[in-house]
């Protein structure tokens, strides 16, 4: 559904946009009208719109997004190279941010109303209000230039990497991953902590928690076993909902740290007016989000026995 909307919307957008969809290459006055007609025919641009739309849809379904103007390479192979890199960065950051965010929320709720709670609340609000790319730049300035603990960008050492042994090469990758992944995780964790704290407080007043406390369950286990389990559903929802924003954050982080993934690809494509790549990135990005919300829906059923008994999926 989502993917269908996005593909249709991008198709409409391209055709609403001013100018020739072929972009800059055809504007060159030295190219004769005959060549232009030939190119249009080659790309199917002389066909009526519904035919073009049908062709576009079938191609998109096959993962075929045409050729990049800027790289002279098929968009498919560009994506095949960039996507795993983004998944590596985003996956690492996602795991870190959920772990950190939930831990912060737990501490806040355990110390509800104290100075610790307030300090963590202010800190997460502050981080939540940071522009992604700005935090990335500050991290880069601090930890790559001022205190050169980590490399300043890229995925591997551009000169030495091909000559490294297996362990050294792996270490090189990890070193390059630390700064972007931590930055992305920090940004995401703040939002998760804010959300999770509210979710935990929501259930904190419930009767079964009072019962658990009354029968002498230690506070720690009340939080970890009783409250957290019931506050798990909002986390799953959050996972689905946070993905679009998270992906947006990835775009900026990749740009600042020159991480050669989907985000950098999209940004460079925008700068180069490389439409097929821009569109492919938007479509693939939405597919990733759609995949994420599908996983969230499945996790719902796993986490909430009520949904299983009713035999239905979907959100409550």
């Amino acid at each position: 559904m989502v993917v269908a909307v996005v593909t249709t919307a991008t198709f409409i957008l391209i055709h609403l946009a001013p100018g020739d969809p072929m972009g800059g290459g055809l504007d060159d006055p030295r190219i004769s009208e005959a060549v232009r007609t030939h190119w249009r025919a080659a790309y199917g641009l002389d066909q009526p719109l519904p035919v073009q739309f049908l062709r576009y849809l079938t191609n998109a379904a096959r993962g075929e997004f045409g050729y990049s103007f800027a790289y002279n390479e098929s968009v498919r192979s560009l994506l095949a190279r960039a996507l795993p890199r983004t998944l590596l960065l985003a996956g690492t950051a996602l795991v870190l941010s959920f772990a950190a965010g939930i831990a912060i929320a737990l501490v806040q709720v355990a110390r509800h109303g104290t100075a610790t709670d307030r300090a963590l609340g202010v800190a997460s609000l502050a981080v939540y209000s940071l522009p992604d790319f700005w935090l990335a730049q500050v991290a880069l300035l601090t930890f790559a230039y001022l205190v050169p603990l980590f490399p300043a960008g890229g995925m591997v050492d551009p000169v030495m990497h091909p000559y490294m042994g297996n362990m050294a090469a792996l270490w090189d990758r990890v070193r390059h991953l630390v700064l972007p992944a931590l930055t992305l995780a920090t940004l995401t964790a703040a939002g998760i902590a804010r959300f999770q704290r509210a979710a935990l407080l929501d259930v904190a007043a419930d009767d079964y928690l009072r019962t658990a406390r009354a029968k002498g369950v230690p506070e720690r286990s009340v939080l970890m076993r009783h409250a957290l389990r019931n506050a798990a559903l909002p986390v799953i929802t959050l996972f689905g909902l946070a993905l679009p924003g998270f992906l947006g954050g990835t775009v900026f982080i990749e740009k600042v740290f020159s991480w050669p993934g989907m985000g950098s690809l999209a940004v460079d494509a925008v700068a180069a007016r490389d439409y097929p790549v821009v569109i492919a990135c938007a479509v693939v990005g939405s597919m990733m989000v759609a995949g994420g919300s599908f996983i969230a829906d499945v996790l719902y059923v796993v986490a909430d026995p009520r949904l299983r008994r009713a035999g239905g999926g979907g959100r409550p």
Binding site: V2, T10, L13, A17, G248, S286
Partner: peptide, 18 residues
């Protein structure tokens, strides 16, 4: 729902680029 799940920054990039 569909609109909410589009990564907004990619949508905006596409629109602004076009």
């Amino acid at each position: 729902d569909a609109c909410l799940s589009i990564p907004r920054i990619l949508l905006l990039l596409t629109v602004c680029a076009l």
